[in-house]
Design a protein around this nucleic acid. Structure first.
Ligand SMILES: NC(=O)c1ccc[n+]([C@@H]2O[C@H](COP(=O)([O-])OP(=O)(O)OC[C@H]3O[C@@H](n4cnc5c(N)ncnc54)[C@H](O)[C@@H]3O)[C@@H](O)[C@H]2O)c1
Ligand SMILES: NC(=O)c1ccc[n+]([C@@H]2O[C@H](COP(=O)([O-])OP(=O)(O)OC[C@H]3O[C@@H](n4cnc5c(N)ncnc54)[C@H](O)[C@@H]3O)[C@@H](O)[C@H]2O)c1
Lengths: 204, 204
DNA sequence: TAGTGTTTGTGCTCACATTCACAAATCCAA
DNA sequence: TTGGATTTGTGAATGTGAGCACAAACACTA
């Protein structure tokens, strides 16, 4: 396929494919067709073929996609082939749940550090990690941590994001219900649970 | 504006507008222009005008939108003008955080019931609520609860969703990393945190 | 009451995303 | 080795949403 800009939507779906392929791999299946994969994910087969074809021709005509190597390709594309360290900011209700969540490891993520600004929490353990003072985020650069999960109140989120950016963070998963202003080189993905819930009554 | 199908994207943004208007209302501002609102939300002004115009002409030319009544209009559109009761399924790590989260009340949501299938948890308190046995979800219909937040392992999610649908649930906020199959009349919104995090390294 | 400045509501255009449709490639059985 | 059955990869068509530009509407002032 001659070069074309890769749609953001395609990128957004790649982790979905990776998760599905990891499952198929566990089930021992060697290859999977776009039709089978589409069925699992409730997408249309051409969508999957087009998405994958942006990155090259992984499949074999008449057969489908080799499960293991396609998964590995996606990991490489998404830079998940190397373990990714992330910092968790905020060891409150949500932060505690996230720190205990094993689901991030499917994609090779490791929550390598936890920060808070509550003196009562500093030094306490959260799983195998020790809660550090928020001022220690300045050390993220040296510790090769480039990702952060923000789980603090929205009033504090922007100031904290500024600080993370200064500390060399390149990607932020923001769980506070607010917009974050960051330099273009930094990528922010926000999740607003209340807003997601907010649309449901409309459809009832 | 002559009738046109309302884009899903417009609906998705409505809670955003409502949250922003609630804030502006608290600040005491009486009216707000699409330009001011767009600045807060980092959108373009015509986007906001077009979105709102799908539901009628709320604004006054030369002035802007009246903050209080526009917020009320949006509540009516989204059916958030009446308090909405929701059930929380799963009182684990994430469920506990959600049960304690006050942020849902901005949109008039109330987590009116909590369910789990772990005998050790049934009867325990979670905030002011008592954890009920999962079998009690069959009573949701009678209790006028039509919304559910699903915070249980993905292996159990589909079976539980089926049960919720049978109990008359019309909307589900799914936090498990899996696709849920439900009848067309039921709306599902899924949040997959690991997947959201999964795209970040690509952009670094 | 007329004039000025502002902001809405919306037709139109453009950009992006999804889906279709089919040729090209591969496997496998006879 | 050939023919039939699959399934990929992709140009073209279709669908969907975002943004522009401007007329229409309103407030306010003099
Ligand atoms: N709890 C939920 O289920 C839930 C759901 C959706 C969104 N959220 C959002 O997630 C964020 C955290 O929610 P929560 O329920 O965990 O709140 P929380 O109050 O339980 O925890 C917040 C934590 O952040 C720490 N903190 C505050 N300011 C800080 C700062 N400047 N630097 C470092 N740490 C700081 C606090 O000490 C506390 O430990 C909020 O923005 C909330 O809106 C939470
Ligand atoms: N913890 C997080 O931060 C986090 C982040 C993203 C996604 N999730 C997802 O949210 C879900 C819950 O995560 P968690 O960390 O709270 O897990 P958890 O194991 O702490 O809690 C799950 C709870 O669900 C209950 N449960 C299990 N099967 C049930 C059933 N059939 N009916 C009723 N209750 C049942 C369990 O008893 C337990 O209390 C999972 O799907 C997880 O992937 C969690």
């Amino acid at each position: 396929m001659k070069y074309r800009k890769i749609p953001d939507e395609t990128i957004r779906r790649m982790p979905m494919y990776l998760r599905a392929l990891s499952l198929v791999e566990q089930e021992g299946q060697q290859t999977i067709s776009s039709r089978q994969l589409a069925e699992r994910l409730h997408l249309k087969p051409p969508q999957i073929r087009k998405d994958l074809s942006y990155f090259g021709a992984f499949g074999t005509r008449g057969i489908g996609y080799p499960v293991v190597s396609t998964a590995q390709q996606i990991r490489t594309i998404l830079r998940l082939d190397v373990p990714q360290k992330a910092a968790l900011i905020g060891a409150g209700q949500l932060g505690t749940a996230i720190a205990a969540y094993p689901g991030f490891s499917v994609f090779g993520f490791d929550i390598a550090a936890v920060f808070d600004n509550d003196p009562a929490k500093i030094g306490k353990h959260i799983g195998r990690r020790v809660i550090e003072h928020i001022d220690a985020v300045d050390s993220l650069e040296d510790r090769a941590i480039r990702l952060a999960i923000l789980a603090i109140p929205s009033e504090a989120a922007q100031a904290c994001a500024d600080r993370l950016v200064r500390a060399g963070v390149k990607g932020i998963l923001n769980l506070a219900p607010c917009y974050l202003v960051v330099p273009k080189r930094v990528k922010v993905v926000s999740i607003d649970m209340a807003m997601a819930l907010g649309v449901l009554p409309y459809y009832m």
